[in-house]
Each structure stands twice: as structure tokens, then as C-alpha cells.
């Protein structure tokens, strides 16, 4: 179930703020504006945003890119990847899609905190991946949701990326 993000700690809010930076960066690079950071032992070990257009690979979502980075991080630091991932929290501006939710559950990630729901591809909203995979991962959503949705709407509208960001009302509307 989606939990209310009002239960987020100050640290968790700070990490979400960080993830938003990369969503904004994605928008500026004309990529789907989703930003993501991975936290292990209170430190950022991976950060990223969508790179689908640059790589011409539709699977290069922020979360997948971050898993790649954690893989490198573990190798570099001589750590066991599985143990690192099991203690890693994911902060992502948009609910992970079905593919990314499965990828995160497959590697037994500790927790996921996301911003807005993903009405097109959501791994909870469109198809409940957890129901099939039964992960231990805890999931919270809804923090700065309107803002995260606003970024997406701006992208899908194809508006001028240099236009000032707007406060968008999104209730009941699909992005």
C-alpha cells in the first residue's frame, strides 16, 4: 500500500530534495524527468536520472542506472553487492515503473520512497509487482507529489524546457 509521506524524517526529506535535482536535470536534458538517489549507511552511493533518449535504450531509467552504479561501488570497495543492496534505500521522484520495481525487488532493496504516482507504468498503480514477487522492501509515496507530477506534465506537454516551472494542479488528471 502507498503510505503517506508526511511520515518522512528530516533526513528522508533531504534525500528526496536531492533526487528532485536530478529530475530537474533530466527535464533540461529533454529526458523524462525522473531523478533518483540510493542511500547506503547514510551516504549517497548512486544518483541518476533517465537517459533513455541519449542511449536510445528505453530501459535506461534512473533506478536501473543507479543499480549499475551500486554494482560498481560494491566492486570498488570490495563489498558484497547483495548485502549493500539489502541495506540501501531508494529515493525517487516518481513511483518506479513495473520494470524498475521488479529490478529493485529482485535485488532485495531495503526501501523505496517516491514522489508522485506513475499512472502510465507504475509498478504499484498500473500493475502490482509486489503482489507477484512478495518483496521485503518497504515502500512509501506521496512526498512533493504535485511537483514531481508537474515536471512530468511539463515534459509530456513538450513545452519549452527553458520556461519557468509552474505550480500545476494534477488531481484526477493523467499526466
Amino acid at each position: 500500500m502507498i503510505m503517506d509521506a508526511s511520515v518522512l524524517s528530516d533526513d528522508e526529506k533531504k534525500f528526496m530534495d536531492e533526487a528532485f535535482k536530478y529530475a530537474q536535470e533530466a527535464l533540461e536534458a529533454q529526458e523524462v524527468p525522473v531523478g533518483c538517489i540510493f542511500i547506503y549507511e547514510n551516504e549517497i552511493i548512486a544518483l541518476g536520472r533517465n537517459e533513455v533518449n541519449r542511449t536510445r535504450n528505453a530501459t535506461r531509467h534512473a533506478e536501473i542506472i543507479c543499480i549499475d552504479q551500486v554494482n560498481e561501488y560494491a566492486k570498488k570497495n570490495g563489498l558484497d553487492l547483495k548485502s549493500v543492496l539489502a541495506e540501501t534505500s531508494v529515493y525517487v521522484t516518481v513511483e518506479p515503473c513495473i520494470m524498475c520495481a521488479a529490478a529493485l525487488y529482485n535485488v532485495n532493496i531495503k526501501s523505496i520512497i517516491f514522489g508522485c504516482q506513475n499512472d502510465r507504468f507504475g509498478g504499484q498503480t498500473v500493475f502490482d509487482v509486489a503482489k507477484v514477487l512478495g518483496p521485503k522492501t518497504t515502500v512509501k509515496g506521496g512526498f512533493r507529489a504535485e511537483e514531481a507530477m508537474g515536471l512530468l506534465k511539463e515534459f509530456y506537454k513538450g513545452t519549452n524546457p527553458s520556461a519557468p516551472s509552474t505550480k500545476v494542479k494534477t488531481k484526477g488528471k493523467k499526466m
Partner: peptide, 23 residues
């Protein structure tokens, strides 16, 4: 080598390589 590198994911990235992409 990498938990993301299932055969299908690798094949998709290889398709991207034929389109001046790939990661």
C-alpha cells in the same frame, strides 16, 4: 557481472548500439 544484465536487457542494449546508442 551485474544483476541488471539479464539476457533480454543485454539484447535491448545491443539493439540500442545499432542505433548509435547503448549504455
Amino acid at each position: 557481472e551485474n544483476p541488471n544484465k539479464h539476457a533480454v536487457m543485454v539484447a535491448i542494449d545491443n539493439v540500442a548500439r545499432t542505433q548509435d546508442g547503448g549504455a
